[in-house]
Each structure stands twice: as structure tokens, then as C-alpha cells.
Simulated assay, not measured.
Amino acid sequence: MALLDETAKGVYVIAVTPFTETGALDLDSTDRMVDFYLEKGATGLTVLGMMGEAPKLTADESRIFVRRVLKRVDGRVPVVAGVSASGFAAMRELSDSVMGDGAAGVMVAPPSTLRTDDQILSYYAMAAETLGPKTPFVLQDFPLVTQVQITPAVILKIVAAHPSCVMLKHEDWPGLAKISALRAASDQGGRRISILVGNGGMFLPEELSRGADGAMTGFAYPEMMVDVWKAHAAGQVERAHDLFDAYLPLARYEQQPGLGLALRKYTLAKRGAIASATLRKPGGALSKMDIADIERLIARQERRLKEIG
């Protein structure tokens, strides 16, 4: 598999981590999940992300899971692995493992302890050194979770200083102006990197219009992001918005803090992508009313998709 680079585009689905009813890794469901994402048109996969319950896995489980995903993908699409860690030794160990097994790149989020621009720049300099120049990495910018605010100017300095930084996972909210600023800088001669957006695709049509290259996020209907991206790339902007609007009520519902992953796993299990909706503890649990809401939203979504064709 070729390494990740600045030309990456499309939809890199943030994969869930399937568990059995007892909370053990479900590797058979891992195969089913990979097949499901690829059948829905994913151009890449990202594993061990924040919505992949990575902190709940042991180091050995992380390696086993990534290895299984890579084996099932079999080089058909790039696979990115999250390697964020509290220390650089653990980051290097996991990165060396996944890259050795065939990952296309890794993703690094900043620790919540960073407060100043200088601290952020220093951290990513050390991260780039730790990973090595031959390991491309994704800078994950998710201030709603990390509590680290990274300005466009700081991102541009990281990109200029470290050629191995090839992608920004953009999850700032609101963040449309940030995409515009980064694209304006590359239009004026700065190095252009890939920008894939997160937040469940909640602002995907607008982000694509600002210059994003696609999405790197999860949603129980990944084909929404794929179809929106394809329509937008073909110049069918209104069609992209119509498709997005049909899925928006369910996408919005799935974005609930603390409950979103349980909702996503329930729907993925309903669709046959995984055998069980189990979250490893601690994790949210759905009520009968939550499930009724999902079922209603799915029914309305299906009707709307039939109407627009």
C-alpha cells in the first residue's frame, strides 16, 4: 500500500471497534465491518480514532485489531491508525507496529495540556521526530474534545516545518473560516496538504465548498458522505445539499455527546455491519425511547431518499 500523501481525498471512514456481548474484541465482525465500509464506497479507513474506543484497548489489542483490518483491506484502500498517546515512547511503539504491518499513515491529536502556540509547535516537532521522516502523519484538530486551540497560522508553521505532516483532520466548530484561511495560504504559494473534515460530516457540503478534500469521520450511513462528496466533486452542488439534507436529522441525532457512539453502533448492528452494538465499559446505553427515535428517523430518511431519487 502506498503511503498517505497530500493528494488524499474522498471519505476515510472512522471505523468503530466491534466487541462481543462480553466486551471481547470481535474479529469476525471486524471483517464484516471492513467489507461494509468498502461496499459503501469508502476511499480509506481510519482506525483507533476517538470514536473507535481506542483508549479502552490494551496495547496488544490495538495491534491485533489494526492487523486484522489491514489483512481484510488487503491493500484496496489506505488505512490510517490513530497513535495519540500520553508519551512519545508509546506513540513510537504503536506507530512502528502499524506502519510495519502496512498502514498508510498515522494520526496524532494534541494532548489537552498544551496551552500556547509555542507549546503546540514544540509538541508537533517532537511528534514528527518520534515518528520519523518516512511516516506520514495527520494532524487532528478537534478543540471541542482536546481543548487545544490551533490557529491557522500555527497549522501553517507545522506544515512548513514538517514535510511528513500531509493531512489536517479538521474538526473545529465553527471552522469554515479556518479552511478558507488555509486554502488561501496554499493558493499564495504555501504547501498544500489534504484537508479531511470530521464532526460526523455535520457541515460537509459547506466544508467542501471552502476547499476540503473530503471527510474523515464516522456515521452509520457512510454512503451519505461518499455520495455528497462525489456529487460536489462533479459540480452538482445542489444535489450534494439535497442528499445531505435527507440524512441530516439522523446525523444530527447521532452527534449527541456521550451517546453518539452507542447510537452509531446500534444502527451499524441493525444494518448488519457488526454483530453486536456493545460498547466496552464505560459507555453510554440506549433507552427504549432512544431506539424508537432512531427507528423513526431511519424510516423518515428512507422515505426522503426515495423522493429525491
Rank of each mutant, 00 (worst) to 15 (best):
L4H: 08
E6I: 09
A8L: 10
V13G: 06
V16I: 12
T17W: 07
T17F: 04
T20Y: 01
G23V: 04
A24G: 09
D28S: 13
D31H: 12
L38C: 04
G41P: 07
G44F: 00
L45H: 03
L45I: 10
V47D: 03
V47K: 02
G49V: 07
M50P: 08
A54E: 14
P55R: 07
K56I: 12
T58C: 06
A59F: 05
A59E: 12
R63K: 15
V66I: 12
V66T: 10
R72E: 12
V73F: 07
V73C: 08
R76E: 12
V77L: 08
V79G: 01
V79A: 00
S84E: 00
A85K: 00
G87H: 01
G87I: 03
M91G: 00
R92W: 06
S95H: 02
S95M: 02
V98M: 00
M99I: 11
M99V: 04
M99E: 02
M107V: 09
M107K: 05
A109W: 05
A109N: 08
A109Y: 01
S112G: 09
T113L: 10
T113G: 08
L114Q: 05
L121S: 05
Y124P: 02
Y124Q: 03
M126K: 15
A128L: 06
E129S: 14
T130A: 14
P133Q: 10
T135H: 09
F137K: 05
F137D: 08
V138Q: 05
V138A: 00
V145G: 05
V145T: 10
V145A: 13
V148H: 04
Q149A: 12
Q149W: 13
Q149G: 09
T151N: 03
P152F: 06
P152E: 01
V154P: 10
I158F: 02
V159Q: 03
A160K: 15
A161K: 11
H162Y: 04
H162T: 04
P163C: 01
P163T: 04
W173T: 11
G175F: 12
G175W: 14
L176W: 10
A177G: 15
K178M: 15
K178A: 13
I179N: 10
S180H: 10
A181G: 08
A185L: 08
A185H: 13
D187A: 14
I193A: 01
N199H: 14
N199E: 13
N199M: 13
G200L: 07
G200Q: 12
D213V: 03
G218I: 14
Y221D: 11
P222V: 04
M224E: 07
M225E: 13
V226I: 07
V228A: 14
A234S: 14
Q236G: 12
E238F: 05
A240W: 02
L243M: 09
F244R: 05
D245V: 11
Y247T: 07
L248T: 13
L250D: 06
L250G: 08
R252N: 13
Q255D: 11
L259W: 03
L261M: 12
A262I: 02
A262C: 05
A262W: 03
L263P: 06
Y266K: 07
T267K: 04
L268P: 01
A269I: 00
A275T: 04
S276I: 01
S276T: 07
G283S: 05
G284L: 04
S287D: 00
S287A: 06
D290K: 01
D290M: 07
A292G: 13
E295V: 01
L297V: 03
L297C: 06
L305R: 15
G309F: 10
